[in-house]
C-alpha cells in the first residue's frame, strides 16, 4: 500500500514551502477520496496553491470542487461585478452581491465548504499583474478571457514553470486546454492474482506545447472525412473559430433572436473557418454553417449543467496534475452537452 516514491521535482524554481502533514481530522474528512487517490496524493493537494482567473459559473464549479478536495490555497482573481444574469448560473453568489466584485462575493460560500482551505481574493485585473505574481502558484487556470490574454498568461506561466489551464463554457459547449510543460507523473496498473490485487507503478512524463503553438497545429490534409472526425473533434474547430472571432472583433458573436439570424457575424465566422479549412484541405462538413449559427446562440452563455460537467473534469484534471498521478488531459478537451460527446484531442 504505502510506497516510497521520491518527490518528483516539478517545482525546482519555487520557494521551499513547509510541508503540512495530514492530521486525523483531515484523514476522517477526506476518507472517501483518500481511498481513491491515497494519502500521498492528499498530502500533495494539502500543500498546493492554485490560481483561478475569472469568477463566473464555470469558475464556481471548479472552485467548489477544489475546495472540497482540500487543496492548500485557492486564489481567485476577477475585476468584474456580479450582474443579475450571473445569479442564474453562479451558485456561489446571491442577490445581495449584485453590483459587488465577483471574486469577493464567492468567498463567503466557499469558506463554508471547507474551512481548512485558504481562500485569497483579488479584485483586480489579471492584466495588471506582473510576472513574479505567477510564481506563487502550482497551477494557473484562466476562464472568461480572450485569446490574447490567454496566450500572454500561458507564455508567462511557461517561463516560470507554472502549469497552465484555460477553459470556458459557451452554452451547451465547453473546452479545456492545458499546457503542463513537461509533466512527470506516476501511472498505476492493478494486476489481479486470483482474489488478490497488486498495484504496480510506472514513472512517466508527457511533453506539452503552448496555446500559441497548439493553435498552429498542422492538420493532415489527405484524410477522409470519417477518419478525420474520429481523430479530431468538430467541437475543437468550433472553439477555435470562436476564439479567433473574439480576437478579430474584440467581442463575442451576438445572438439576435430565435427568428432572426445574425448574418453579419455568421459570415465573419465562416471566413475564419474557411481560411483554416482551406489551408489544410479540411472538409466543410467538419464544421457546417448550421454549427456556426449554433455558436452564435451559445457564445458567452453559461448554463450550470454544462459548467457542472466541464468544471468537474477540469477540477479533477487539476487534482491529477497536483497529485502527479496518471496522465492529465493532453492537451484539449472538447465537450458538446447535447450529444454528450467529450473528446480529448492531442494537438501538440
Amino acid at each position: 500500500m504505502k510506497r516510497n516514491i521520491s518527490e518528483v521535482d516539478n517545482t525546482s524554481n519555487k520557494k521551499v514551502k513547509t510541508i503540512h502533514q495530514l492530521n486525523d481530522e483531515e484523514a476522517a474528512l477526506y476518507d472517501r477520496q483518500i481511498r481513491l487517490w491515497g494519502f500521498d496524493a492528499q498530502r500533495r493537494l494539502r500543500n498546493s496553491s492554485i490560481l483561478i482567473v475569472g469568477g463566473k459559473a464555470l469558475s464556481n464549479e471548479v472552485c467548489k470542487n477544489l475546495v472540497l478536495a482540500g487543496v492548500g490555497s485557492l486564489t481567485i482573481i476577477d475585476d468584474e461585478n456580479v450582474t443579475v444574469e450571473d445569479l442564474g448560473s453562479q451558485f456561489l453568489v446571491s442577490k445581495k452581491n449584485v453590483g459587488q466584485n465577483r471574486a469577493k462575493s464567492m468567498k463567503e460560500r466557499l469558506v463554508k465548504l471547507n474551512s481548512s482551505v485558504k481562500i485569497n481574493i483579488i479584485s483586480d485585473s489579471i492584466e495588471n499583474k506582473d510576472t513574479s505574481f505567477y510564481n506563487e502558484f502550482d497551477v494557473v487556470c484562466v476562464t472568461g478571457k480572450p485569446l490574447e490574454s490567454l496566450i500572454k498568461i500561458n507564455n508567462i506561466c511557461r517561463k516560470n514553470n507554472v502549469k497552465f489551464y484555460s477553459a470556458d463554457v459557451h452554452g451547451i459547449f465547453g473546452y479545456i486546454f492545458c499546457d503542463l510543460i513537461n509533466h512527470k507523473y506516476i501511472e498505476e496498473k492493478n494486476i489481479k492474482y486470483g482474489d488478490d490485487t497488486k498495484t504496480k507503478q510506472y514513472e512517466k512524463s508527457e511533453q506539452y506545447s503552448s496555446l500559441e503553438d497548439s493553435l498552429k497545429y498542422k492538420f493532415p490534409s489527405d484524410m477522409k472525412l470519417k477518419r478525420f472526425l474520429r481523430k479530431y473533434s468538430s467541437i475543437y474547430f468550433l472553439i477555435y473559430t470562436l476564439l479567433q472571432f473574439q480576437k478579430n472583433n474584440k467581442r463575442l458573436p451576438k445572438y439576435i433572436s430565435e427568428d432572426e439570424e445574425n448574418t453579419e457575424d455568421l459570415n465573419k465566422l465562416k471566413e475564419i473557418r474557411d481560411h483554416l479549412f482551406k489551408k489544410y484541405d479540411i472538409n466543410n462538413a467538419v464544421l457546417n454553417d448550421e454549427s456556426l449559427s449554433k455558436i452564435i446562440r451559445n457564445a458567452g452563455m453559461e448554463i450550470l449543467p454544462i459548467c457542472s460537467v466541464v468544471g468537474g473534469i477540469l477540477a479533477q484534471d487539476i487534482l491529477k496534475v497536483i497529485s502527479q498521478k496518471e496522465l492529465p488531459i493532453s492537451n484539449w478537451f472538447c465537450y458538446d452537452g447535447f450529444t454528450g460527446d467529450g473528446v480529448i484531442n492531442k494537438l501538440i
Binding site: 476518507d31 472517501r32 449543467p305 473534469i313
Partner: peptide, 18 residues
Amino acid sequence: IIASIATTNAIISGIIIM
C-alpha cells in the same frame, strides 16, 4: 467502503439535467 468524490458526482448530475 466505496471511494467517492465530488467531481464525478458533479459531472454525472450535469448529464442528468441534459
